[in-house]
């Protein structure tokens, strides 16, 4: 398989296999089935590709689902303008390598249009992505968006259907979800509504890493351990970047870290790690005792149910 320049080496040492093929095959077959249901049931679907590890898996699954044809949907990224440059470079390289169409719409443009208003210039743009996303949905007439969300990430996501309805405002109504029986995913909607489809709903964080190892998928370099200036805030590490300068009195120190998710710079925290290969990350993840969003999302800490609230508002 072809790889981009950002690939880190996969260890070839003769250590015990870190994944179980039977489980990964089962998850892969289910995800391919869901992707094909989207292709068959919708007129204008799109796949959300951020360059993050979950959407990297989605691209490999789409190759398995649709090759030798082109993907029956474009890739879409909602860029906050606050993403790590390595991730953006990776995103573009990967789309190019696959020969698939990539549509980028930016929160910056929504700010210019006045549809997004920031409380202050360095405010996290994470929750404003939903505005730009809905604008893109309207612009292109998308009737289904494929996302890499997993049920093990968070409590509200644990309840979400594989085909999840959104009304004209992009809102999710968790108290009135449709029944979803067997694998008979129902893509019929009211006019103006759309569906968010989650092919890797049943994958855990470990499954994702194991799949990346098995399929030898390339990832942005910031997923692997590197030295980076950080400050410590409570249990979390905050990376020091031009957008996230240290606060008064905070001590900046170089720390060996890796990112477990690669979102907006203002709200994504790295974890301390020396894991420089996928295999080392799998071992570390298997032992880790902090769930992914808790360790890395600075904005999920504020409220017991903050993800549900963002999802209701149209967040992915």
């Amino acid at each position: 398989m072809s790889e981009t320049t950002m690939t880190r080496t996969h260890q070839t040492a003769t250590e015990p296999q870190l994944w179980d093929d039977e489980t990964l095959d089962w998850l892969e077959a289910e995800a391919i089935y869901i992707l094909r249901e989207v292709a068959a049931q919708f007129q204008r679907p799109a796949l959300l590709f951020s360059g993050g590890k979950d959407s990297v898996c989605l691209l490999r699954l789409a190759e398995k689902a649709f090759r030798p044809a082109r993907f029956p949907f474009p890739l879409v990224h909602i860029d906050t303008g606050h993403n790590y440059p390595e991730v953006i470079a990776f995103r573009d390289a990967r789309a190019e390598e696959l020969g698939e169409r990539l549509i980028v719409r930016s929160v910056e443009d929504s700010i210019r249009r006045g549809t997004v208003r920031l409380a202050h210039p360095l405010e996290s743009r994470n929750r404003h992505q939903s505005v730009t996303l809905l604008e893109a949905i309207e612009e292109f007439g998308f009737d289904c968006l494929i996302g890499g969300a997993r049920r093990d990430e968070e409590k509200a996501r644990a309840k979400e259907r594989v085909f999840s309805l959104r009304d004209e405002f992009g809102q999710w109504d968790p108290k009135a979800q449709r029944p979803e029986l067997w694998n008979l995913y129902n893509g019929h909607t009211r006019p103006g509504w759309h569906v968010r489809a989650f092919p890797i709903s049943n994958w855990t964080e470990l499954d994702v890493w194991r799949y990346i190892a098995r399929e030898r998928l390339a990832l942005p370099s910031i997923y692997f351990a590197h030295e980076r200036p950080c400050v410590r805030r409570g249990r979390l590490l905050a990376p020091v970047t031009p957008l996230t300068p240290p606060k008064e009195g905070e001590v900046v120190e170089p720390v060996w870290v890796r990112f477990r998710t690669v979102g907006d710079m203002t709200c994504t925290a790295p974890v301390e790690s020396r894991a420089t290969t996928v295999e080392a990350i799998i071992r570390e993840t298997a032992e880790t005792m902090i769930s992914e969003r808790g360790a890395t999302r600075l904005d999920d800490q504020t409220h017991e149910a903050s993800m549900e609230q963002r999802k209701r508002e149209g967040y992915f």
């Binding site: 049920r151 093990d152 409590k155 644990a158 309840k159 968790p174 108290k175 979800q177 709903s201 049943n202 855990t204």
Partner: peptide, 8 residues
């Protein structure tokens, strides 16, 4: 409990 929660 209102809706199904999936756990792994």
């Amino acid at each position: 409990t209102i809706d199904v929660a999936y756990r792994y």
